[in-house]
Design a binder for these strands. Sequence first.
DNA 1: ATACTATTGATAATGATTATCAATAACATA
DNA 2: TATGTTATTGATAATCATTATCAATAGTAT
Lengths: 137, 137
Amino acid sequence: MILKVPQGKRLTKQRSIILEELKKNRIHPTALEVHKLVKKRLPKISLATIYRNLKFLQSNGYIMSINCESCNSERFDGFTDHHQHFSCKVCQKVYDMNKSKSDEVKVNKKEGHQVDDYQIIFNGICKICLKKEKQYI
Amino acid sequence: MILKVPQGKRLTKQRSIILEELKKNRIHPTALEVHKLVKKRLPKISLATIYRNLKFLQSNGYIMSINCESCNSERFDGFTDHHQHFSCKVCQKVYDMNKSKSDEVKVNKKEGHQVDDYQIIFNGICKICLKKEKQYI
DNA sequence: ATACTATTGATAATGATTATCAATAACATA
DNA sequence: TATGTTATTGATAATCATTATCAATAGTAT
């Protein structure tokens, strides 16, 4: 019996353009928002393709995803360098948080679990929403 | 004009029992799992009441919630002391992580956001699933 | 050119969560 | 204790994000 070598997954035009859009700015869009962005360049692209390919890009290490409480759905991030996120409970936006000196978390190994990675999400009110709120005081 | 004093929200029987179940053990169940647990004591309780009251308990500080990538839905935690979580990508369970010395994260204030709190989620494979995997090697 | 596999677009299906609403329970006041 | 008022509940419908299905198309290898 001949074992078929699993064919390497290609970076199709749809996949490249999704990736490009995510790498344009340090934004953290939902799948729906990615669809909106990508449709400007590929008007016929289906939302299913967006979901499928976001998953593909993620499991192949091209992008990462963020789940937080005040985001109502999953967010995607085209930058995979180690950094943290801030989630605004007013406008639901997710911002990058630049590394602060002491946010290197030491993993507690006593529990016996195999820890592959970790993420920190900061919650609060973003700069812009803070400013808006002040106008009403 | 007379301003009505907003009536304090009561801790009804349904709410107390949901809270009790969450405080029995350091578990992190989904809304559906909470429903299952509570139905043993209140067989007529509706799933809508579970969702409504989990939200109520959370926004009144009785419980907290956890959103992570490999959990497919929101988890609830009856313990609100500051602690972190580990999420197993194999069995989808969420475990408590006891505090390690250096997991006090200093918040970067340069961004200008108002940070109310933060959470750390560790991802990997839990002790139990690790053991199971070894059996097949 | 031909055969084969991966990918896509369109759309249906699923699953979690939220909204609606009539019935009930709790509370305050007479 | 009866009565009016508001909050809460249970049942169920509706919504929204995500996933599955499947025929058509594109890409690759021979």
